[in-house]
């Protein structure tokens, strides 16, 4: 069973992610962000559970599009997201890449590219390198969606992890839609977790909107990977509670899904679980919500005040190596 303290900590992370992304969305709607905004609304429980199951400094976390909560849980500064969305020179990508394409690879958090499934083999390489160097590998976790399971990179990466017997934890957020495409146009297998059998690895499932279940299942999978059990595939169904991006009103989502168990908001479920566990009462949660609002305000205000990159000072060097003409 999940400890009440961990439940509370993870719930706090979820709420911070939700509020932070609401603020980022507000800035976007006010015209303050170029490109798009992609939020993890509905995925916070799964993402926070993954982030809190990992140890920064030991493990690797390759987040994907809807992992604001997992990033925070893994120790990402709340200002990193706003800085990257706002293209600030102080962000990890220094305006050279934006929004969810951010990370600090030398600190165990590689920066995703848009091409789905690609980060799996990157994590494999990080783990293999550590093993070859005789270091503690830690666990390498990567996150992707139901759509990404259709890519060649998913197959190649997961199979490679199995062949190399790497401590890879792959979390599939089956949020029912890849942009607008329902799972019926993505795959026909009865359950995505059945793919684990095909790769010769362990598979796990949990309801993706149930924080307690996510913490239990992911905690076990991470422990199994850490203990030498090889790659772990976790499949967690739930419903994305946003569009693909904030430009998308998600009109295509089946109303029956919204009203069914998959459509329940993970933040509501987690709140009930925290209260039931006795880790916090209503008053404590109200205080916590106020603290979260302060963190969000500070993070976004900091990012907004930070300097932009200077196109006239940009060196335009794609290589570390300097090459004489």
């Amino acid at each position: 069973m999940t400890s009440p303290d961990l439940l509370l900590k993870a719930y706090c992370t979820m709420l911070l992610a939700r509020r932070l992304e609401e603020k980022i969305t507000a800035i976007y709607r006010a015209g303050g962000i170029a490109g798009g905004v992609y939020v993890g609304r509905g995925q916070e429980a799964l993402s926070a559970a993954l982030g809190h199951s990992l140890r920064r400094g030991v493990d690797i976390f390759a987040p994907l599009i809807r992992d604001q909560a997992g990033r925070l849980a893994f120790g990402e500064d709340p200002a990193e997201g706003p800085r990257t969305y706002l293209g600030r020179a102080t962000g990890p990508m220094r305006g050279r890449d934006g929004n969810v394409h951010r990370g600090r690879p030398s600190e165990g958090m590689p920066a995703m590219i848009s091409h789905l499934g690609t980060m799996t083999s990157v994590v494999c390489g990080m783990l293999l390198a550590r093993r070859m160097q005789g270091r503690e590998t830690g666990v390498g976790a990567t996150s992707l969606g139901d759509g990404a399971t259709s890519t060649g990179a998913f197959h190649e990466g997961l199979n490679l992890a199995a062949v190399e017997k790497l401590p890879l934890v792959m979390v599939v957020a089956n949020n029912q839609y890849a942009y607008s495409t329902p799972t019926s146009r993505q795959f026909v297998c009865a359950d995505l977790v059945d793919k684990a059998v095909g790769y010769g690895i362990q598979g796990h499932t949990c309801p993706g909107n149930d924080l307690s279940e996510c913490l239990n299942t992911i905690g076990k999978a991470v422990a199994d990977a850490r203990g030498g059990g090889g790659p772990q595939l976790i499949v967690a169904p739930f419903l994305r509670l946003s569009g693909h991006g904030e430009h998308d009103d998600a009109f295509y989502v089946d109303p029956a899904l919204r009203e069914g168990p998959l459509g329940r908001d993970c933040v509501d479920i987690a709140r009930e679980q925290v209260l039931a566990s006795g880790a916090a009462d209503e008053e404590t949660l109200a205080t916590m919500a106020g603290e979260i609002a302060d963190i969000v305000a500070t993070a976004t205000a900091t990012a907004q005040k930070d300097p932009l990159p200077d196109p006239y000072a940009e060196t335009w060097q794609a290589l570390k190596t300097s090459c004489p003409a």
Binding site: S121, V123, C124, G125, A129
Partner: peptide, 11 residues
């Protein structure tokens, strides 16, 4: 992809 990951870790 594995090569990139290994390079990130100093190989």
């Amino acid at each position: 992809g594995l090569a990139l990951g290994a390079a990130i870790e100093g190989m």
